[in-house]
Amino acid sequence: MMDHEQDEHGEHTEHAGQQRRELGAFVRARRENLSPDTPGTRRRTPGLRREELAARAGIGATWVTWIEQGRAVRPSAATFARLADALGLGQAERAYLFALAARHDPADLSMRAGAGAPPAIAAIVAALPHPAYAIDPAWDVIVANTAAQHLFAGLFDHRNPGVPNLLHYVFTDPAARALLPDHEARCARAMAEFRRDYGRGMHDPRVRSVVEALQGNSPLFARLWAQQGVLGREGGPRRFDHPQDGALFFMQHVLADVDRGDFRLIALIPAQ
């Protein structure tokens, strides 16, 4: 048993070491691709020197050296944020840097708060003839086509101020209870799917506020939240009892945005 535990520890250590080496190689490659602030001077190595990158980032040159060398150090998220800015990283590169560093990007909150639908998601939602919508990390419905607005009776009611929130709707709106024939089971599934997203977005105050508000407003939410259920957002058959159209049957399909994996597109295709 002890040998097995030591093997697992060794594998974990090797994985962490490999991740640090990948991080160091990535930072060094990006540094060497940057142009110096004073071009024209003769250099033995391409790009910026470590000291120059550190000065741009407002961090110590030792940090840059240790990161590039893959040392077992743990700079703060703020340090990596300044480094990412100094390297001029694009969105995908920045996400890769923070993934290798095992740190949460502080800028991610500002990107999420009030963000509209990613263009690809908005275009697909608009193009589909069947109900389709997209949710952000707080499960605000950031875009929905006409068919979805008709299906989810009450969710898009003009009398409800603010951005419609799918979780608030499912747990607290009487219209949702009437629309979903298996209401409590659908609530349990929604809760478990949301908890998976919560694990990635719990640093976002908007996400936390949804949990806090529903814990106070919905005993069912509070009970299910305490059960710690977790599910991926899955497709499958869905039934609705629509107030105007009666019983409706769909197959649900879920896609994530390739640029912002915390956004979900949900399409409901009529079942045959």
Rank of each mutant, 00 (worst) to 15 (best):
P164T: 02
E14I: 05
P75G: 02
T65D: 05
W63K: 05
I142Y: 06
T65K: 08
D136Q: 00
A61E: 09
L109E: 15
R31T: 02
P46L: 06
A113R: 15
A107Q: 13
M191K: 03
G90Y: 05
R44A: 11
E32M: 07
L34H: 02
W225R: 05
G162M: 02
V210N: 07
A126S: 09
I59D: 05
V230N: 06
A192L: 01
E5Q: 14
D197C: 08
V258N: 12
Q244Y: 12
A153C: 10
N160Q: 14
N160M: 13
G40L: 03
M202D: 12
A185Y: 02
R260P: 00
Q91L: 15
A16M: 09
D182H: 14
Q244V: 12
A147R: 06
L220V: 04
Q69I: 07
G17A: 11
E22Q: 13
A77G: 13
A271I: 08
R112G: 06
M202F: 15
L97S: 02
A222F: 01
H130T: 07
L265Y: 07
Y169W: 08
P39R: 00
G40P: 11
A192P: 04
F171E: 00
P75F: 09
R28Y: 04
R20K: 07
D173K: 00
Q69C: 04
L155M: 11
V125L: 00
P164D: 01
H104Q: 14
G236F: 10
D262Q: 13
L231I: 10
P174Q: 04
A61H: 04
P129F: 11
R238A: 13
W63F: 10
A77P: 09
H168D: 10
A226E: 04
R49P: 05
R43C: 05
G88E: 04
L220Q: 09
H12A: 15
D241P: 08
S110C: 12
A92S: 14
R44D: 07
D182L: 11
G17F: 00
N160F: 05
A102S: 15
P219V: 06
R20Y: 06
A101S: 10
D204L: 09
H242M: 01
A176S: 02
M191T: 03
D241F: 07
A134H: 01
A120V: 14
A127C: 05
L151I: 04
R112Y: 10
L151P: 04
F240R: 07
S209H: 14
P181H: 09
A175V: 03
Q6T: 11
A86Y: 06
A176M: 01
P164H: 00
R264G: 12
A117F: 00
P237E: 08
G229V: 10
R21V: 08
A127S: 12
P219W: 08
A54F: 04
F80T: 07
F240Q: 10
P119A: 11
D245N: 12
H242R: 08
A122Y: 04
E51D: 13
L220D: 02
D140L: 03
R30W: 08
R223L: 12
V230W: 11
P270R: 07
D173A: 09
I142P: 00
D204V: 04
R177G: 04
I67F: 00
Q18Y: 01
G10F: 11
A120H: 13
